[in-house]
Design a protein around this nucleic acid. Structure first.
Length: 329
DNA sequence: AAAAGATTCAACCGCAGGCAT
DNA sequence: TATGCCTGCGGTTGAATCTTT
């Protein structure tokens, strides 16, 4: 059937916005808001633009407090951490970086961060192909066996409702729901995150989520696969919040999961070290099927140490130096 | 100085999901 | 329940800019 176009493409202007258009859009929204209808908005203002284009322009450029360029090391760390844990959910990642837009972060990742990581990773992989094949084959077989086990749920079900605070970002909530989480109706205030925190996610919820995942995983045949992820001696996500090297974390993820990690396929580019037979024998090892098991990031207890990011994977201070300043190595 | 190649990033596109009817 | 509209999202494109040869 096909969708009706959101606007008449022949009668709308496309391409870069002029300062006049920007001014019109900005002043209107500042005075009147969007009116809850982007489609109708350009006509009201007299702009020959598609409503979606107006929305994008506002959200990515005209909106107050937007930051462009100049990503800090802390922001790099957060982006990488979240990308590892949730993949290319740019809107969710952006929600943790005040003033940043999903588009900005996406561009930044695709043009800079990814390349830096890619460069690092490939250097190391070159000398370790044989070992990787064995490790990945074993894990893949375990996962394949596990997938055939009817007791294994398609999605993890939360064993008790999570109480989310009113301050929680809805996108995080949505994500957790997508991943199988259930929430109480009343969303009672349970915020235990430091008021100084720059990134106010409900830590208790994340912790509970994590714990439930661990419970689920522990009761499943995939134990032997994922125990490697949670054993303190081998886990680069140090549960005590001690220093853990970013590159090591990244390698750990790659080495322990054959799934494509939604965009991390680039890590395998040109390197034929994946045992492809494992993934063609009935097992779907893509991100979607693995995501619930990858998600459980070791939660770090909230603290008041100056408002640093306190959820999920915390990268060591300075761990991204080598990414940001590769020539300094 | 100029051409070619690489990079950046604003903007576009199409899809999925939510919501109203 | 079915349908259509709108919003939000992530992937992609392409013009502008920068770097290299």
């Amino acid at each position: 059937m096909g969708r009706a176009p959101c606007c008449d493409k022949n009668n709308v202007k496309r391409g870069p916005w002029s300062p006049e258009e920007d001014a019109k859009l900005k002043s209107y929204i500042e005075q009147n808001g969007t009116g809850g209808n982007w489609i109708a908005l350009p006509q009201k203002i007299g702009l020959k633009r598609c409503g979606k284009s107006c929305r994008l322009r506002w959200l990515n450029y005209l909106r107050p407090n937007i930051k462009h360029g100049g990503f800090s090391e802390e922001e790099d760390r957060i982006i990488c951490s979240l990308y590892i844990s949730i993949g290319s959910r740019w809107s969710i990642i952006a929600a943790q970086l005040p003033g940043r837009t999903d588009n900005d972060i996406k561009n930044y990742w695709n043009t800079k961060l990814k390349k830096k990581l890619f460069g690092k990773q490939r250097q190391k992989q070159g000398s370790r192909k044989g070992k990787e094949i064995n490790t990945i084959s074993t894990i893949s077989n375990n996962i394949n066996n596990m997938n055939q086990n009817p007791c294994w749920p398609e999605l993890p079900i939360m064993q008790q409702p999570i109480q989310f605070s009113n301050n929680d970002h809805t996108s995080i909530r949505k994500l957790l729901i997508k991943l199988g989480g259930k929430f109480s109706e009343n969303d009672q205030l349970t915020n235990v995150v430091s008021p100084n925190s720059q990134y106010p996610i409900d830590n208790s919820s994340m912790q509970l989520m994590y714990q439930n995942h661990i419970n689920l995983i522990s009761s499943s045949p995939i134990d032997n696969v994922f125990n490697n992820m949670t054993t303190p001696n081998t886990d680069p996500y140090n549960m005590n919040g001690e220093a853990s090297n970013f590159t090591a974390e990244f390698e750990h993820m790659i080495n322990n999961h054959q799934q494509k990690l939604d965009g991390l396929e680039f890590l395998y580019e040109d390197d034929v070290f994946i045992d492809k037979s494992a993934s063609t024998s009935g097992g779907n090892l893509d991100w979607e099927s693995m995501n619930p098991y990858v998600l459980p990031l070791p939660p770090i207890a909230a603290s008041n140490d100056g408002g640093n990011f306190q959820q999920g994977v915390i990268l060591q201070e300075g761990a991204l130096d080598e990414l940001r300043y590769p020539m300094a190595q």
